[in-house]
Design a protein around this nucleic acid. Sequence first.
DNA 1: TCTCCTTTGTTCCGGTCTCGAACTTAATCG
DNA 2: CGATTAAGTTCGAGACCGGAACAAAGGAGA
Lengths: 395, 395
Amino acid sequence: MKHVSFVQPAVASSETARQINRSIVLNFIRKQQPVSRAEVSRLSGLQRNTVSLIVEQLIAEQWVVEGAVGRLPRGRRPTFLELDGRRCAICVDLRPTRVQLGVGHLNGAFALSDQFTTPDNPDRATAELVKRIRALIRSHPELTYEGIGITVPGRVDLQTQRLAFAPNLGWPPTDLKTPLERATGLTVELENAANACALAELWFHPSDHPPDIIALTVSEGIGAGIVSQGQLITGRSGMAGEFGHVSLDPAGLQCHCGNRGCWETLASERAGLRYYLQSARRASVNIEFSDLLQMAESGDVIAQRALNRMALELARGTRMMVAAIAPQVIVFVGEFTAAWSRFRPVIEAEIQSQSVGAPPSIVAGRDGGTARVRGTVALVFHKHFSAGPPTRYCR
Amino acid sequence: MKHVSFVQPAVASSETARQINRSIVLNFIRKQQPVSRAEVSRLSGLQRNTVSLIVEQLIAEQWVVEGAVGRLPRGRRPTFLELDGRRCAICVDLRPTRVQLGVGHLNGAFALSDQFTTPDNPDRATAELVKRIRALIRSHPELTYEGIGITVPGRVDLQTQRLAFAPNLGWPPTDLKTPLERATGLTVELENAANACALAELWFHPSDHPPDIIALTVSEGIGAGIVSQGQLITGRSGMAGEFGHVSLDPAGLQCHCGNRGCWETLASERAGLRYYLQSARRASVNIEFSDLLQMAESGDVIAQRALNRMALELARGTRMMVAAIAPQVIVFVGEFTAAWSRFRPVIEAEIQSQSVGAPPSIVAGRDGGTARVRGTVALVFHKHFSAGPPTRYCR
DNA sequence: TCTCCTTTGTTCCGGTCTCGAACTTAATCG
DNA sequence: CGATTAAGTTCGAGACCGGAACAAAGGAGA
């Protein structure tokens, strides 16, 4: 079997140096804004003149704007630089039950806007999205829309950019990108929700995270976004991170994916609800996961027991990830983090029993309900901030 | 909790371009040797003059030598370039039972030399290694020794470079690097055996492998070396890839690592032997895994059943890796590949039942017994062939 | 108010690098 | 023996960065 032998490494010229330095400067401005040219020079190690030249270019291309003038005890006042907030991305979080829209600005500002119930087929979903996105764009004509970022509850094929595997959505493989791009004229970035959350963590909380993190989204299903050495692990056609479909109980329940006893069937919101309904003996009662959290909060012992069981199963799988990937941080994202004080000790205890080296830190995603939507901002802008694809040392 | 915020990205200058292109040229020569300057120019996209300049430099630094002169139907004859075979690495494969030594040349030539029984403590092992390595160097004074590469049955701490976790060796955390470097004057590279095998696959079989592979070493224990997008996944302090210590059976046997029912306790050579002894009811008979393979080969039904059970457990864990990492290829390394025709179908069947996307290819390591030792060649030379650390796009 | 000092930001020069084109070298073919 | 073809070299142009000198913009102190 022959594969495409290796990625042709792009040769470097003097312009390559500029590209690299440009991305360095741009990232320093993003991370430190507002910041002066001199400060960027000191932080990056680039000469002041080089920074000035690059900044001039960035201003011309409308990535950066000059802001206020600073104060110093002595000397000339620095003029601060910021990212240009007029650039923004349209953010879509597509989930099995609801679709959430928002607008994320390059300077970090963010606003949720619309939401609607997820249509039961891709075509209707596309049509609805087009309608709402058009309205969104019309409502703020002063902004420059960079693109549309969409998080999906499934895996996006790297080659075709189609939504290739989405058992919790129940859609067939779907091309969302092409029709949306055609209808709106904007580029569309699709990404698995967990991957997007991982990117968002790096993007919005740069200094707190070392470069090896896992973002775990727990909702209808379980997905993991793996970042290693600052790079998203995609795997063959973008399928990496399906820890949710590792079978932890060969005799367990049938999963959407076809296997039995997947972690997802043991530790997702659905599993939590199932644990509750099994004990409560109230079959087919129409309760949602948020209700379960509420009930546990207000002292319902059966609900509490269901959540504890869910926590235990979550912990088991987390231990698997720790052994496999050895991240420095695991960020948990999902409604269940509202009951983080219940989950955290259980997971932490299990992790600590894994004696191979120091355990990773366990944190709940800080953006609460917006983590997934915000992730799409990173998705859209991310490629503009890296100097081309990282060199791959494939032999 | 604060971490070192991010890796300071190295700024680029004109010399950066040269470094990048140098590594491109060097790698093309390695992969295509013997090859002419003109051919490198065509393959890489660099101008002929640039290639010539870089090659001149590489020859001066003794990385490359001019070889034979080629023939063409018309035109001036090309002079072929090859890597300089006088450069070589000392290769050590440290295993719980035996230590194997060898010499690997930059041009791909390779020779096993010495082997000895693993001493039961680190100090004696170091002393023995120093003695034998000195003898090895003395025996070929015409060669330039670049460094010493050592594969170990455990994990090497990224920061301290100590052998930090080696349950199958039974050693405490040990610094092998410093004393060996002091005694020999050569730099020492330590790496987990599975990681080394993964690097070796990329290094010696460049065109066959896509950039997402897992190398799985099965012997006394089980270790995985993960390469994603052409880069080795290290994880927090080099601990990534411990799939062998994921618990697949919470009620299973106690493992060296302290947990219960680790994959390693179910599918390693030791497990295979255990399965045999359990059925054969010949406790404490002194047989080795190679004997077991032999017995199965010559028709012993109990031995065959033991191997089949081992294959089944190996397959189960492989499925976990496929879900988690989604590699394009999994390379199996270990004595058990002698019975590959027995293992392969079992693993393949299990993988195929994983319905998420196309399954990865399953192959047995081609270098047989020398895979691990050869891996160390890649280990020693690898850093000279990449243009500095890959840029990390950490936010 | 005026001068000194400090810090920001710019201008200019020298060096490195790649690219493109012209040139030299060395072989084959008619 | 000249035409042709391809390999490898030489040279000038253009892009970029680093370092040093310079202009700008204030505050502190006399």
